[in-house]
């Protein structure tokens, strides 16, 4: 079976599972003897609606596969690069997480300047003077705007 079709079916199954899980979680909320008052009533309704749409998505995928095969435009194309692209996205996400963790430890100015240098090089900037200029300039500009002018408590 073609990979895009399998990915699309797994996606609808995952969404259906999320809907069932949330439906179950909604049922655990107390109703205080009056279902209209229950905190779980409306979440349960929305979860059920989401389950219906997830199943509709699965049906749509199956019909598209029968009609057009694995190359149906219904199945999203992951674009050029495939797994390498996802790996880059995850790496950027990890970089941002590290920056967030370091913010309270190194404080805004040091953490931001260091993050900018690493990220600019990762993004493809090779001119060292530009890397230093942008990192220092942005850090100073943000410190001035948020910290000094707008009195935002920076980490």
């Amino acid at each position: 079976m073609p990979v895009p079709f399998i990915a699309a079916m797994l996606e609808s199954a995952f969404l259906a599972a999320v809907a069932v899980f949330l439906l179950y979680q909604s049922s655990l909320l107390r109703d205080f003897g009056d279902s209209a008052l229950s905190a779980g009533l409306f979440p349960a309704i929305v979860s059920a609606v989401m389950l219906l749409f997830s199943l509709a998505l699965a049906v749509q995928n199956l019909r598209a596969y029968k009609r057009d095969g694995g190359n149906s435009p219904v199945f999203p194309d992951s674009g050029p690069g495939g797994m390498k692209r996802h790996a880059r996205a995850i790496l950027i996400f990890a970089l941002a997480i590290v920056y967030t963790v370091l913010l309270p430890i190194l404080h805004f100015a040091v953490a931001t300047a260091a993050f900018m240098i690493v990220f600019l090089v990762f993004a493809g900037e090779r001119r060292w003077w530009m890397v230093l200029l942008v990192a220092a300039g942005l850090t100073a500009a943000l410190q001035l705007m948020f910290g000094v002018l707008l009195h935002v408590m920076l980490p």
């Binding site: 941002a96 967030t100 931001t112 900018m116 993004a123 942008v134 942005l138 943000l142 948020f146 980490p155």
Partner: peptide
């Protein structure tokens, strides 16, 4: 390659500035 790192820092600081909270940054990410 220059704009996106700047946008990332702006995203992080923008999310943080709402309530001066790292929780907001994590949610944003």
């Amino acid at each position: 390659r220059l704009l996106m790192p700047m946008v990332t820092v702006l995203c992080v600081i923008g999310a943080y500035a709402v309530e001066s909270s790292i929780y907001q940054v994590v949610i944003m990410l």
